[in-house]
Design a protein around this nucleic acid. Structure first.
Lengths: 347, 347
DNA sequence: CAGTGGTCATGAATCGTTTCAAGGACGAAA
DNA sequence: TTTCGTCCTTGAAACGATTCATGACCACTG
């Protein structure tokens, strides 16, 4: 068998198939791409040759000539983060039926890493990219479009007009949580929030405040905000202990946590302080992580349509790719949903 | 600017760069691949042209000629599963410094889906694939190697001799959990396990039994096994309630759950029945999911080196790819680790 | 029987890169 | 001045598929 220098067998090419079937390469190509234009007899002969040789198309050669490739690149902040994991799954589910492949990487919010992957994807000639932009990388991303590469921003509510993006309305999500607590009659509400350097924290605070105002409350009266440095359980526990320092008659009767991890910590603090949930303290989280319903006290949380988010992003991209001429850019903002469980409406 | 029929600008090629810099294409290629062989003056001229034109290499043409491509394909059972997510991150972290790209898909344990992705990857000419094989797909995977594609099995303790694989020792992991409980003095241990159709369940049972035997105990005396149909919290809760049906004097004093989700359910049942953890019932999970330490009662669990698993799999693959001639196949089995927390050793 | 139309198969050109034998320029040595 | 040798650069041939103008062949029609 022919080799390619490194001793590995060369994979059979369309030429080998043609020779074996006694036809020309053009015919083999026709069998592969326009089978109806080939006589059944010939077609079968070619098919047989293909199977005997274990012929597999060479995507590179194909793309080189045809100019297109059924591949999409995605760059998320961190594949190991459940949020992006579910988004990725949504992307995949949109791509699979169209036989597209997905190239996936994590930027870790490092613009340099992101740029490197973008270039790699561009070299590969992907049809488009789905990106969660890091700080200040938007410009480079948009430049891709001038070189014929589709772009859809993931989980970014961009100010830029002419680029498609998908995101979830964090302001609304937080408002939902607070509205729920108000409806339950809570008049002193705590908000355990993270630093302003995280967009989500800023948006969610805005949602909290707007919900209070919309209900005719003065945030200064109702709201106690505790800011933590990082969004994990330990921080949440510490924050809740701080809240519990106030005597029971004057402390908040409900707490909204900026994410489920901090809520878990808060829950732990409540348990150790023997404060009953939700009777003495109602609790709402955000993200609706997979274990939220599995907890000893199932956690009320704001659910984000992550799968749909990814699916839609991929859908927009494929649509733009197949659109003739000018493309209409869409900016989709999904609405989160409050999932009420025992931690607020316990029975 | 030149177009390619669909109205999008054609990306500049090496020829365009050559023309602009007033050199031949060969020289441009040399600048890109063997810069030391080019006079600094020429090199700079070419570099300038590259930047002015925003030239980006065409990976397809490159691969077509050079025969190689820095891409690896991975097929896991489900990207949305945290286990595989962390594995994927490990793979990525191994590939990134070598400028490899990762193509990632989920097979959902469907051999047909898996086969489709394998073919897609093969068409793309990936250097190798990392696969968690579905039922009965091993043969097709191994056939790839005859066509020059590297293969490393992920999370599979394969019986096949001559293929590299990485996995985690589930037998040992379960044994660790049981040894721990025995050391704490527990003499009646429950094991909430899943169906035998799942390999992990079978392996972990074997580990439980072997640990008991090794300690000179008769499993028939010590062990109470409850089998659940699916590995989620509700099933775990039900199983634990069943165990609690026995009067306190004779029921198990410790429970080992086949994964953390069932353990969460068990924990919930214990809380509602007002059984103190770990005093009246110790609890061990498996997987060490991210929230295990965040729980009200932090959960003792068996931790698997998922990131390392992925990293090592990718490492084996790259090594095999760069190895000259015959490759030595390695089968790496990682050892899990018990992380002791309050749910067994509570203060 | 010539003419027409339609169906299939052909083979050369093409995509953008890498590679390599061959040639050019230039300086050093004789 | 001639002759080498060295160092850069060149240009054409590949890689494997797709595409398309061309032509072969056959069946009808008039």
């Amino acid at each position: 068998m022919a080799t390619r220098g490194n001793g590995r067998p060369r994979r059979p090419s369309i030429t080998d198939v043609a020779r074996r079937a006694g036809v020309s390469v053009g015919t083999v190509s026709n069998v592969l791409n326009r089978p109806e234009q080939v006589t059944p007899a010939t077609r079968e002969r070619v098919q047989a040759a293909i199977e005997e040789l274990n012929f597999v198309r060479n995507a590179s050669a194909r793309q080189l000539r045809a100019g297109t490739i059924r591949t999409v690149g995605a760059i998320v902040l961190d594949i190991a983060n459940p949020f992006f994991t579910e988004v990725a799954r949504g992307i995949e589910d949109r791509l699979a039926p169209d036989e597209y492949t997905l190239m996936l990487s994590s930027s870790d919010e490092d613009p340099e890493r992101e740029a490197r992957y973008l270039r790699l994807y561009e070299e590969h000639g992907v049809q488009g990219v789905l990106v969660t932009p890091s700080q200040g990388s938007l410009e480079a991303i948009l430049a891709l479009r001038e070189r014929g590469i589709g772009v859809v921003l993931l989980d970014a509510t961009s100010d830029v007009e002419d680029v498609s993006s998908v995101g979830v309305d964090d302001v609304r999500g937080a408002a939902l949580a607070v509205e729920h607590l108000l409806e339950l009659g809570h008049e002193r509400i705590a908000f355990i929030n993270g630093p302003d350097s995280i967009r989500q924290c800023v948006d969610r605070r805005a949602g909290v405040v707007s919900a209070l105002l919309a209900a005719g409350r003065d945030p200064a009266d109702v709201l106690t905000e505790v800011t933590v440095g990082s969004l994990n359980a330990d921080a949440g526990e510490k924050a809740m202990n701080e809240l519990l320092g106030v005597d029971a008659a004057r402390r908040p009767t409900a707490t909204f946590c900026v994410n489920d991890f901090t809520a878990l910590g808060a829950l732990r603090a409540l348990r150790w302080a023997d404060v009953r949930v939700p009777d003495e303290m109602a609790l709402v989280g955000y993200d609706d992580v997979v274990i939220a319903p599995m907890l000893t006290v199932p956690l009320t949380s704001v659910h984000q349509p992550t799968h749909t988010l990814g699916w839609t992003a991929a859908d927009l991209l494929l649509r733009e790719a197949s659109a003739e001429g000018a493309v209409e850019h869409q900016r989709v903002l999904f609405q989160p949903e409050l999932v009420v469980r025992t931690s607020t409406a316990g029975g």
